[in-house]
Design a binder for these strands. Structure first.
Length: 781
DNA sequence: GTTATCAAGTTTTTT
DNA sequence: ACTTGATAAC
């Protein structure tokens, strides 16, 4: 047995985790402890011992993690070895389950998934329709309040029941109206995917039985980042009969299902969106017989890196300490550098990465290096520097492509076709490009539609509906309706494939929508001079290619929502073929597009340095890692500084960043950073000292700060003048000035007051607007 | 109805 | 700095 290749080169705890196949198992896996290796071996081991692949359900945090796990299991089992196995994110699993069991869930099978933008649009209308002011009830905070409730599986009624003060009662009304608006549009938001799945599993025994019959081995990765809804879903699927909606609290389950969860409380970084570390504790309470295995030995990082991580994380009070240790000797010291400005920081990082390239021979691939930051806005300066320095880089922003205006427009057309009740998508594109269906017309139609209780598109295609409009608008409505019918084959949405005009492939449909809607012509017309519109056209054709690719790879058999085989043959049986094939294909495409995450885009096969947020870096590793912007207010973030709990989460985030590094780690902070156009004095992060590494200070050779006394903050550190407005304007239109970074220039205009700004045309870098107080501008004679 | 210009708010982090 | 929302001109 011990020469089983699946067990070779595993440590004792890893081996035990692999061999524990029956009954609940909790794996506490420290950073870099070979977690993925253990999990993939365990899955392969299950299959080797006779478990059918389709009986295995593995839930991960990102699509990328799921894909990677599948690839690694497949390399252990051989090609096709994972056939029927479901490896997906919670959200995609739930989306598929809800489609399959749409009726039981109380949804139409063509439901749309609304992203943050769509949610905001719906919420704005809701707030408005309730006669509330958007200032007192900002759509964004309404949404986040509601999201918190949903993560706890509390619905609008439950929230209303405990809402005592005026504010909460109002929020409860908003909550109710928001839910109604979503359902009217046949739409769900991200949270609903989880909420409605949990609800359906609880309320519909036949659905639960269906799932439990199929999946006999359940595995949940990144368990420390699951929220309550995800906890309930995984417990129910595993057979947690004790989990009852009417019974608050966790009660031990009588049986011992085959559920394996893996997590590390020190890497919990999603509490802000409802993740609950206590799910790990609750796991042991729910399954008292659970075996707990700790993976502590680190195989990833050198001793100095690990020591810094350990020294830092020990500062967290709410924490069960576990030792991080490595048997690897030596290693270069961790570098902490205090820079002058963000530009200085960026050029320093560029140099550092170039040095790291020479760490090995042949040179270290760029793809083995990463730059990590707390929030996305920090990427820009680094980008500029890497581009100027000729170092290839990619920004891990998976959603970026689908976030682009032109792509979102095209997708809105498609979503409207997939779900004719999707009013949010319809109103997004009904007048894009302008076709005479402006606000006034749409408002009239919307009012009539909601009076009749039908979706807007349905109303528009009803004969006579546009009669109340002026002839011009009436013609525009008719034209739009016939445009849509041309794509769907006449209002029936491909029901019987009888329409000759209907497209035959997904790529064809996408292409036709882009062309016939006028989107293409609109951007082509604007593309004359503007480079960005040229790029928009390319993105649109890229969307067609991605549809074609999706179509080629689409495997209806791979749908995790399929039931278990009835007759013991391999492969899931049955299928959800109720929808016409084209419509099913379109829905699946839109769903895959809706559920991509930033972390999904980190593709190490590209020969480029990866730039990403600390959150997106979870689960990855690199030869060299640079963490930038280690400053108070950034990391920890300004918001987090209010509570100790939040600071501890930021510390864990820093810990996650540090432990991504295998060999080399650089952490930088800048003394001055331009945030939202204002250059501000920054204080190095407390985490720097807490890492136990001595920081070195560097001066910026190109920063022009050789004569420091000239630039020490003046107005910034001095109280404002008592006699306001009397100060002599040192800068007015026409005066020559010098800026430490931008060089010399001429003032174009200046404003007075507390936040006095000057607009300066710099000789080298063009026109900039600066806030006088912070800009360290020097007048030239 | 459409387009241009200006003021205001905005930034954590993600499915 | 940058996008979004409101108002005014076309």
């Amino acid at each position: 047995m011990h020469d089983d290749p699946l067990l070779a080169d595993l440590t004792e705890p890893q081996r035990q985790a692999v061999l524990h196949t029956e009954g609940p198992l909790l794996i506490l896996a420290a950073a870099g402890s070979g977690k993925t290796r253990t999990l993939t071996r365990r899955i392969a081991h299950l299959v080797r011992t006779g478990v059918r692949p389709w009986q295995i359900l593995a839930l991960t945090f990102t699509n990328k993690a799921a894909a990677e796990m599948r690839a690694r299991v497949e390399s252990l089992l051989g090609e096709g070895g994972t056939r029927g196995m479901v490896l997906s994110t919670f959200h995609s699993l739930c989306a598929r389950l809800l489609r399959r069991h749409a009726q039981a869930a109380g949804l139409a099978p063509e439901f749309s998934i609304y992203d943050t933008d769509d949610q905001t649009a719906v919420m704005k209308k809701v707030v408005e329709s309730l006669g509330l002011s958007a200032a007192n009830f900002p759509p964004r905070s309404m949404l986040s309040a509601i999201s918190n409730e949903k993560n706890q599986l509390r619905d609008a009624a439950a929230f209303a029941a405990v809402a005592n003060d005026f504010y909460s009662r109002t929020v409860a009304k908003v909550f109710t109206a928001y839910e109604r608006a979503l359902r009217a549009a046949q739409a769900v938001d991200f949270d609903d995917l989880l909420v409605l799945t949990a609800k359906t599993l609880r309320a519909k025994p036949e659905v639960l039985a269906d799932c439990q019959a199929r999946w006999r081995y359940i595995l949940v990765d990144e368990y420390q980042d699951t929220n309550h809804a995800q906890f309930v879903i995984s417990s129910l699927l595993a057979g947690g009969s004790a989990l009852d909606a009417s019974a608050p609290g966790i009660h031990p389950a009588s049986d011992a299902p085959n559920i394996c969860v893996v997590g590390d409380p020190d890497q919990s970084i999603y509490a802000w969106r409802g993740a609950d570390i206590s799910n790990i504790l609750d796991f042991e309470r729910l399954y008292p017989s659970a075996r707990v295995i700790t993976l502590g030995e680190n195989f990833r990082s050198t001793a100095p890196i690990l020591h810094a991580a350990d020294t830092l994380i020990r500062r967290n009070v709410r924490r069960k300490h576990k030792d991080l240790f490595t048997k690897m000797p030596g290693g270069d010291p961790v570098e902490v550098v205090l820079c002058e400005s963000e530009r200085h920081e960026a050029s320093l990082v560029l140099d550092w990465l170039r040095e790291r390239r020479q760490d090995e021979s042949p040179p270290v691939a760029w793809s083995r290096m990463a730059v990590l930051y707390r929030n996305n806005s920090l990427s820009r300066v680094i980008e500029d520097s890497l581009r100027a320095g000729g170092v290839p880089y990619v920004i891990a922003r998976g959603t970026a492509f689908y976030d682009r205006e032109e792509v979102r427009h095209a997708l809105a057309y498609l979503r409207m076709l997939a779900n004719p009740a999707d009013d949010a998508s319809l109103s997004r594109i009904v007048n894009v490009p302008p076709r005479g269906l402006g606000d006034a017309t749409i408002t009239t139609l919307e009012t009539a539609a909601s009076a009749r209780g039908v979706p807007l598109l349905r109303h528009m295609s009803t004969p006579g509906a546009a009669d109340a409009l002026n002839p011009r608008a009436r013609a525009a409505v008719a034209k739009f309706v016939s445009l849509v019918e041309g794509w769907t084959g006449g209002g029936t949405f491909w029901a019987d494939g009888h329409a000759e005009s209907a497209p035959g492939s997904l790529a064809e449909l996408v292409g036709r929508v882009i062309r016939e809607s006028g989107l293409e012509a609109m951007y082509a017309a604007r593309a004359k001079g503007a480079e960005t519109d040229e790029a928009r056209l390319e993105n649109l054709s890229e969307l067609v290619s991605s549809a074609r690719q999706f179509e080629e790879e689409f495997d209806p058999e791979g749908d995790p929502a399929l039931a278990a085989p009835q007759d013991g043959r391999d492969g899931p049986a049955g299928g959800n073929l109720a929808a016409p094939p084209m419509l099913a294909l379109l829905r699946a495409f839109l769903e895959s597009v809706a559920l991509v995450a930033d972390a999904d885009a980190a593709d190490p096969s590209l020969g480029a340095v990866t730039l990403m947020t600390l959150h997106a870096a979870k689960g990855l590793e690199f030869h060299a890692v640079a963490i930038i912007g280690a400053e108070e207010g950034l990391l920890p973030s300004a918001r987090a500084r209010a509570t100790d709990e939040a600071v501890e989460e930021e510390r864990r985030l820093m810990f996650v960043g540090i432990t991504r590094a295998m060999r080399r780690l650089l952490v930088t902070s800048a003394r001055y950073r331009t945030v939202r156009g204002l250059t501000e004095r920054q204080v190095p992060s407390r985490f720097l000292a807490e890492m136990g590494v001595r920081a070195s200070e560097r001066h910026d050779p190109f920063g022009g700060l050789d004569d420091e006394s000239d630039f020490t903050p003046t107005a910034a550190s001095r109280p404002a003048h008592a006699g306001a407005g009397r100060a002599e304007p040192r800068f007015r239109a026409g005066s020559k000035v010098r800026h430490p970074q931008f060089g010399v220039g001429t003032v174009l205009s200046a404003t007075a007051g507390a936040n006095a700004r000057v607009q300066v045309d710099f000789r080298d870098v063009g026109v900039k607007t600066l806030v006088l107080e912070y800009a360290r501008l020097e007048p030239l004679a």
